[in-house]
Amino acid sequence: MQLLHTIEDVHKVFDTQGSSPLLVTCNDFRDWVCKYDRFPKYLFNELIASEFAKIWGIKTPETCLINVKREHIPNEKFPQLQIGWFEKQCFGSLYLETSKELDHTMVSMFQEKSFRNKISDKTDFLKIALFDIWTANEDRNHNNFNLLLSVSPDNMSFFYAIDHVNIFNMSFLDYGITDLTEDESIIKTDIAKILFGKDRKLTDIVNNLVEMLYICTKECENKLDDILDLVPDSWNIDKVLIKKRIIDNLFSDDWKNQCESNFREFIQSFVAN
Rank of each mutant, 00 (worst) to 15 (best):
L3A: 05
I7S: 07
E8M: 00
E8A: 04
V10H: 09
V10I: 15
F14A: 11
T16P: 14
G18R: 12
D28W: 06
F29W: 07
D31V: 03
C34R: 04
K35T: 04
R38A: 09
R38S: 11
F39V: 11
P40R: 13
P40D: 07
K41V: 10
L43I: 03
L43K: 04
E46L: 04
S50M: 07
E51H: 07
P61W: 04
P61S: 03
T63L: 05
L65P: 03
N67F: 12
R70V: 12
E71I: 08
I73F: 10
N75P: 14
E76G: 11
F78E: 04
L81S: 04
I83T: 11
G84W: 01
E87R: 10
Q89G: 05
C90H: 03
L94E: 13
Y95P: 00
T98R: 14
S99Y: 11
K100G: 11
E101D: 10
D103S: 15
H104N: 15
T105M: 08
V107W: 09
S108Q: 15
S108V: 13
S108P: 10
M109V: 09
E112Q: 15
S114H: 14
F115I: 00
R116E: 14
I119A: 14
D121S: 13
T123L: 10
D124Q: 15
I133A: 14
W134A: 10
A136N: 07
E138K: 06
H142M: 09
N144G: 06
S152T: 15
M156E: 15
S157T: 10
V165S: 15
N166Y: 15
I167S: 04
F168Q: 02
N169P: 06
M170L: 09
Y175I: 07
Y175F: 11
G176C: 06
G176P: 02
I177L: 13
L180E: 08
T181D: 10
D183Q: 09
E184F: 04
I187K: 04
T189W: 06
T189F: 09
I194V: 05
L195G: 04
F196E: 05
G197H: 08
G197P: 01
L202W: 09
N207H: 06
L213T: 02
K218Q: 12
K218N: 10
C220T: 02
C220F: 02
D225G: 03
D226R: 05
L228G: 02
L228K: 03
D229R: 07
V231N: 01
P232L: 01
D233H: 02
D233A: 10
K239P: 04
L241D: 14
L250V: 00
F251I: 06
S252L: 08
D254V: 14
W255M: 08
K256Y: 03
K256P: 00
Q258Y: 10
C259I: 02
E260Y: 00
N262Q: 15
R264E: 11
R264Y: 01
E265A: 09
F270M: 00
